[in-house]
Design a protein around this nucleic acid. Sequence first.
RNA 1: CGGGGCAUAGCGCAGCCUGGUAGCGCACCUGGUUUGGGACCAGGGGGUCGCAAGUUCGAAUCUUGCUGCCCCGACCA
Length: 442
Amino acid sequence: MRFSRYFLPILKETPKEAEITSHRMMLRAGMIKQQSAGIYTWLPLGLKILRKVETIIREEQNRAGANEILMPTLQSADLWRESGRYDAYGKEMLRIEDRHGREMLYGPTNEEMVTDVFRSYVKSYKDLPLNLYHIQWKFRDEVRPRFGVMRGREFLMKDAYSFDLDEQGAVEAYNRMFVSYLRTFERLGVKAIPMRADTGPIGGELSHEFIILAETGENEVFCHKDYLQLPVPPEDVDFDDAEEMQNIVAQWTEHYAATDEVFDETKWNEIAEDQKIAARGIEVGHIFSFGTTYSEKLAAEVTHPDGKTRPVHMGSYGIGPSRLVGALIEAFHDDNGIIWPKSVAPFDLGIINMKPGHGACDELSEKIYAACLKAGKDALYDDRDQSAGAKFATMDLIGLPTQVIVGPRVAESGDVEIKDRATGEREVLSVDAAINKLMAEI
RNA sequence: CGGGGCAUAGCGCAGCCUGGUAGCGCACCUGGUUUGGGACCAGGGGGUCGCAAGUUCGAAUCUUGCUGCCCCGACCA
């Protein structure tokens, strides 16, 4: 993409509504525009990152055997009356009336609806286990939205729902999602620690929150230091191997790790002083196993091998891609701007033509850009007639991990520079060597 | 929902106390000079001062009501 054709409204000054780093940087980098409290337009750069995060989540859900569907944002109140949550949910639920006066709502979550999908088709134990998920916008009318996309009212959520014959099956389903989440966050470049969590109004016994440690986190968290070192299951981990899944979960739940909601002082004190981590964290995932709470109310039942019909055991598993974009920035930035992990970087590389109109600069820049197009690399090519300083600042702000600088100083002799955004280190290479290196490494 | 604050050009702000022709920086447009870390010179465009009512000869400025947004707290499947 040529910068001159790209819609990237960089802000030089920070809009005053933004208080925390990620929100400020998202606004300054032209990723989002606020439309009203807790509701945002995703601009091209922001949307690109959001999609990359979604893709990683989707790939790992699929790998774990989940089926993607897409349920609507608007739901009928009737379903929620069946589960008893229409009245229980309170003001956070946005209630709407259609032209016929029918009561509708903008979904804050989808347990009811997915259970309805399930009960419409699945009748036999032979069809289990089953996991259905979707990635869809949710709305929760938070009293006080804040922190930009990290605590918005409208937000994107991947929510998966598992259906199993019995408790044992439900635990296995829970374990698969647990492992899937470990892999997902690993691929996103962050350490997310599973912590014991409150199950809240959704009910149930088994629940973990996945927490990224960050100074600006909303939750106070406590855990054993070993969590920072534990190995993450590889790509070819066998999700069908229940024993292996169980072992991984056991390893990742062996030590103490909990949010302040369920803080256990006795267990905390059992940890050696130099092994303790007391920090703040951002919740980026939350998984629950809640048994038959919804399947009983909504009559989601299957026939067992013994011929009897019983409610299915369910679990739900959420990750917020939109919140994650903010959380990633909280984890990866410096004074100059964002430093994207390679897996979610909006472009594979940035090319800075420092002096458009200068023969050698144009020639080398175009050559690299053409090589990218040919190789299918997604490059942002800054071909604008701007001061070099502005170009450097912009590229750093939007956080592309690899940048190629083509300036008159080295271009005359056919060289370009490759800059690493994270370290600031630069390497001068001939243009051909640079192209080879870039095509091979990114 | 309790407490606090803000609202003046696209963004950041001054002006308000003490009523009298709406300003600055950045951004934008034109011309020129520039280009190794957010360039410079000259010229130019852009505002029902959040909305409504009131006081006044006269309101961005004073009064009242409303709306929107932000911060702290409580809340957060």
